[in-house]
Simulated assay, not measured.
Amino acid sequence: MPGMKKSGDMTVGIDIGSRTTKALVWNGEEVLSRSMLSTGWTPEKSASVAFEKTLQTAAISPSEVKRTMVTGYGRGSISFADESVTEITAHARGVSYLLPETKTLIDIGGQDSKAIIIDDEALVQDFAMNDRCAAGSGKFLEFLALTMELSVQDFSELAFSSKNPMQISSICTVFAESEVLSMLAEGVAREDVASGVHRSIALRVAQMAHSLHPQVPIAFSGGVARNRCMIREIGVALGGDISVPEMPEYAGALGAAIIARESL
């Protein structure tokens, strides 16, 4: 019948974040391929390259893709996409597919953080977003890791070993850097400073989430969700266990692809 979805109908979801662009191919049952690259200065170009790489990996042609849906901050500039959807809706849908019981979603991206309340139908009930201050973002984490001459991965592992996290009170990136350098100059253990940075971010994100009266189960998505110290600190700040879905950085792209297929 015309319009009936077939099991092999493929859609593409593209999530254009401030730092990275993610794309994946979805056939209604599984992710066939995925790719991630730096967004850079031209979202249209990064989205196009991610789209092409993902199709090449899956060994399919553009004509085999039934619909392409884009999400993320750069979604309005992608001319080849069929539709767009907000990142709030896309992340909620993607995480709800991967972790169906999720009621509260925390997402930390490169330049913002979000708390999303999700209902039983994987629809957004309410949300809060911090996109005006870097203190609750992956960029803040990356900047202070660089201050300590560490990769983000090493910064996370160092922080995870701390038994006495320091309090980082500054919310401004520049002032936080000064505070970190002062602590290090005073001989404070590097792991305690690193853990304090993670705790500072978690507390700010939790403050935002508490305004929504979060419910359990709680999930954590975004690239920062691969940081096990941040997982621990978010759990402590929210007072509950935190679940991380498979491929947490692709949650938005997956949600976009699923929504695209539902609209066929």
Rank of each mutant, 00 (worst) to 15 (best):
M1F: 12
P2D: 09
M4H: 09
S7C: 04
G8H: 15
V12C: 05
G13C: 06
I14F: 13
I14E: 08
D15N: 10
G17D: 00
S18N: 09
R19G: 09
R19P: 01
K22N: 11
A23T: 05
L24G: 01
V25L: 14
N27E: 12
E29H: 12
T39I: 07
G40A: 12
W41V: 02
S46W: 06
A47Q: 03
S48M: 11
A50H: 05
F51H: 14
A58F: 07
A59S: 12
A59V: 12
I60C: 10
I60N: 02
S63E: 13
E64V: 03
V65S: 08
V65Y: 05
R67H: 10
S77P: 05
A81P: 01
E83L: 13
V85S: 04
E87I: 12
E87L: 10
I88R: 10
V95M: 08
S96W: 14
L98R: 12
L99N: 10
E101P: 00
T102V: 13
I106M: 06
Q111D: 03
S113R: 00
D119H: 01
V124T: 09
V124I: 10
D126F: 00
F127P: 01
M129V: 03
N130P: 01
N130D: 03
D131M: 02
A134E: 07
G138V: 12
L141Y: 00
F143V: 14
F143S: 08
A145M: 04
L146Y: 11
T147S: 14
M148D: 13
M148C: 06
E149L: 11
E149A: 13
E149I: 08
L150G: 05
V152E: 11
D154K: 14
L158C: 13
A159T: 14
A159M: 11
P165K: 12
M166R: 14
Q167N: 15
Q167I: 13
I168K: 11
S170L: 00
I171M: 01
V174A: 12
V174C: 07
A176L: 02
E177R: 05
E186V: 00
G196L: 02
G196D: 09
S200T: 12
I201D: 03
L203S: 12
L203T: 10
R204K: 08
V205M: 00
A206Q: 11
Q207K: 15
H210P: 01
L212F: 11
P214N: 03
F220G: 02
F220V: 00
N227T: 03
N227K: 09
R228Q: 09
I231A: 01
E233I: 02
L238C: 04
L238P: 08
G240M: 02
S243A: 13
P245L: 10
P245T: 08
E246R: 13
P248T: 08
E249L: 13
Y250T: 11
G252Y: 14
G255K: 13
I259D: 05
A260K: 06
E262N: 14
E262K: 14
E262G: 15
